[in-house]
């Protein structure tokens, strides 16, 4: 098998000027886009891609989330406590989280059964979406700068009651 029967530069010369220029422009645009998206990632603190994950069996995680939900039902979650949020057909456990303004929390998110989607929607227009995967927990670090109510919806189809999966984060002083 001959892969390169002719010299490379000979090949390059067979392009017209327009063809060559456009090819180069297209590649430069791609490179600019790649660097901007990386720079943006470094500068934008609002939409970080979470990196921390943990393998965990669905039933184990469910138990953690239930225990957490019982312990902090109706209470403001103190700083430094890891939060466990489970999606399960067709609700969030716990259904509501009370967080303090200006405090950074780590929320472990996972599923008790099928895939779900964690979609956070703030009254201020904040939108943030990550996948909720059974067998794997995702750590999302959040800090809210304003008080108010943020809604959590499931945005990955998980069954016939998918549209009823609504939760809440209430941010207080």
């Amino acid at each position: 098998m001959t892969l390169f029967p002719r010299k490379l530069e000979e090949w390059y010369k067979t392009f017209t000027k327009e063809e060559r220029n456009w090819l180069i422009i297209a590649l430069i645009i791609a490179l600019i886009m790649s660097t901007t998206t990386l720079t943006w990632h470094a500068l934008d603190r609002e939409h970080q891609v979470p990196v921390e994950t943990m393998e965990v069996a669905p039933d184990v995680f469910m138990e953690k989330a239930m225990r957490f939900s019982m312990e902090y039902a109706g209470k403001v979650i103190p700083e430094g406590v890891d939060i466990y949020l489970a999606g399960v057909q067709f609700r969030w456990i716990p259904k509501e989280l009370k967080l303090k303004k200006g405090v950074t929390y780590k929320i472990w998110i996972s599923s008790g059964d099928v895939l779900h989607g964690f979609s956070l929607l703030g009254y201020d227009g904040t939108v943030y979406n990550v996948m909720v995967m059974p067998g794997m927990a995702y750590a999302v670090n959040v800090k809210f700068d304003k008080t108010g109510v943020y809604e959590i919806r499931c945005n990955e189809y998980c069954g016939l009651g998918h549209q009823y999966m609504i939760g809440k984060i209430v941010v207080v002083e």
Partner: peptide, 11 residues
Amino acid sequence: SYQLNNVVHNT
């Protein structure tokens, strides 16, 4: 675009 994805993902 990497982290823009989490704005539009599954919407």
